[in-house]
Design a protein around this nucleic acid. Sequence first.
DNA 1: TGCTACGTTGCGCTCTATGCAACGGTGATT
DNA 2: AATCACCGTTGCATAGAGCGCAACGTAGCA
Lengths: 249, 249
Amino acid sequence: MSQSVSRALHLLVQLGNGPANLDQLAESTGVHKTTVLRLLRTLSDERFTFRDNSNQYHLGSRIFELAAQATDQREVRRIASPHLVAFNREYGRTTHLAAMEGGDVVYIDKLESHDQIRMYSRIGLRANLNSTAVAKVILADLPDSELRTVVDSMDFSSRTANTITTPERYLEEIRLVREQGWAHDQEENEPSVNCIGVPIRGASGRVVAAVSVSVPDVVLSYERVLDLLEPLQAVGARISRDCGYRAQP
Amino acid sequence: MSQSVSRALHLLVQLGNGPANLDQLAESTGVHKTTVLRLLRTLSDERFTFRDNSNQYHLGSRIFELAAQATDQREVRRIASPHLVAFNREYGRTTHLAAMEGGDVVYIDKLESHDQIRMYSRIGLRANLNSTAVAKVILADLPDSELRTVVDSMDFSSRTANTITTPERYLEEIRLVREQGWAHDQEENEPSVNCIGVPIRGASGRVVAAVSVSVPDVVLSYERVLDLLEPLQAVGARISRDCGYRAQP
DNA sequence: TGCTACGTTGCGCTCTATGCAACGGTGATT
DNA sequence: AATCACCGTTGCATAGAGCGCAACGTAGCA
């Protein structure tokens, strides 16, 4: 469909067979040397390729980065599952696993609480960015520039008296989350429901998902929910480890 | 430099953050939705991305393939080194490690024999495609279409009386190599020098390099060189294993 | 010192890639 | 059940991006 893109991709595939120089790539892809040079420049700008001292082109670090991230994404749910089940069995609280999809934070797994009370949430549903612990945890890992973009187009509609409704207040909250490494939601998303969330990191070191527990305050007060923080962090660490994350890389 | 390529790469980077649909990608990259669609089609054609049932785009299998291949390439020399040293210490023969670079097969490591005789070869030097065991082993792993291309533009100049000088004869030889899993060079590259080579496979399953031993017939007859085949295959298997290769995937 | 091989650049033309506007299907909402 | 909104998709016409050519520069080799 798109000629130059197609050609660039063929170059990458070709480099998969081993390093090569301009002429070799030009011949094996049937593209003019000049064009190959310019395509490789673009590829190199984005670290999809690089050139060594002897003018040989190689596949670049971005390929590894993307592969690591993609693996993380594909695997989290499967890897997290047993840990979430164990956690849910022991503490019996509503447990959510959420991940970034496009501009949204989406619930990708959910375990119900053992008591009668059910939360309104469903796998596949979008989590409110401004009022949930999982969203805070995930957004906190974004670089500032991207965070800005997301926050700028965020819907700050109020869901309870505690909902954060301004960008300024939200960015402050994100600062806190970054500092302490976990997030809370004190009746911000649903009245009388408190929630805490922790990040899951993958082999790439980036946050790939978040786990949270939600508890109605008729069951546990906010202070008692905080007792769950330590075990929740432990679960998060275990899942991260299984996803290939190594602390302080 | 190249607008559409640059945009396509940004899409890949964006998808590294998680799956996304058209509109989300259009917004995050600042490119018109229509254009994003067309770029993604090209990317999907080459398996760099794919689309799931709910129209979410994800990073595709090609990324993993490339990452695996690139890792293989980067690591072979380092991984092979101790094995080659051990083999060379035990059998004392000239040992070569070669890999595909561009359209060439290049020596990427060499260990000298313990006797006085030295071969004319050097790390970085290109191996003759039509007359060396390492080249035969590496080319034998190429898909037929690529093999054809290489053979068509191959230099079949004769180096000894035994050198293969026709494409037909060479393709026949490759068939043999594929069948038996190793290659020989009976005084085809240098007069009075016999050689056998075996493949190294990486995590991707593809041949990423080849190891060979070369012995002047004043030192060992061709038949005695064949005694080295089994230990050489063992070394090849060990290196392959360390490169992440798992037999019969 | 001359030669060859290869990376690189400027230029002008062509064809590709792009944005627009409109269509159609699907799923959510009331 | 009906309507609406959302989102993927297509045809078209234009702009300008990408292309190949030819020439230059340079490094390595004989």
